[in-house]
């Protein structure tokens, strides 16, 4: 039973992780990352490290989430489709 809970928690974490780096909407990405942080603290508790859990909740999810939200506020809210590979060639010329 406990093992099942652990497997579910880890699976959830993996799923949220994938989601947070592949969302086209940046805001959603950030929200998912914050959620990831919160579930991670749960995992720390399960692993018997309550102090790490506290730090994760406060810093990992809290501070980082706030920083990310602030940055998103400065940028376009959606990931735009990328231009043609021509720019990649110019990049090589630049390097």
């Amino acid at each position: 039973m406990r093992a099942l809970f652990d497997v579910l928690l880890v699976g959830l974490l993996v799923w949220i992780a994938i989601g947070s780096v592949s969302q086209r909407k940046l805001f959603k990405s950030v929200v998912m990352f914050t959620a990831f942080g919160l579930f991670l603290s749960l995992a720390w508790v399960r692993l018997g490290s309550p102090d790490v859990a506290l730090a994760e909740a406060a810093i990992g999810a809290g501070v980082t989430g706030a920083l990310l939200l602030d940055a998103v506020g400065h940028m376009r809210s959606r990931v735009t489709p990328y231009p043609s590979p021509a720019s990649a060639e110019r990049r090589d010329a630049d390097a």
């Binding site: 780096v21 950030v30 990352f33 990310l68 990931v79």
Partner: peptide, 21 residues
């Protein structure tokens, strides 16, 4: 996207922390 890279790095770190603990 630069934000995805940053989040990715953070997730990378979390993965390692989990392994460590």
């Amino acid at each position: 996207h630069i934000m995805h890279k940053v989040i990715g790095a953070n997730i990378m770190g979390s993965g390692i922390f989990m392994v460590l603990i």
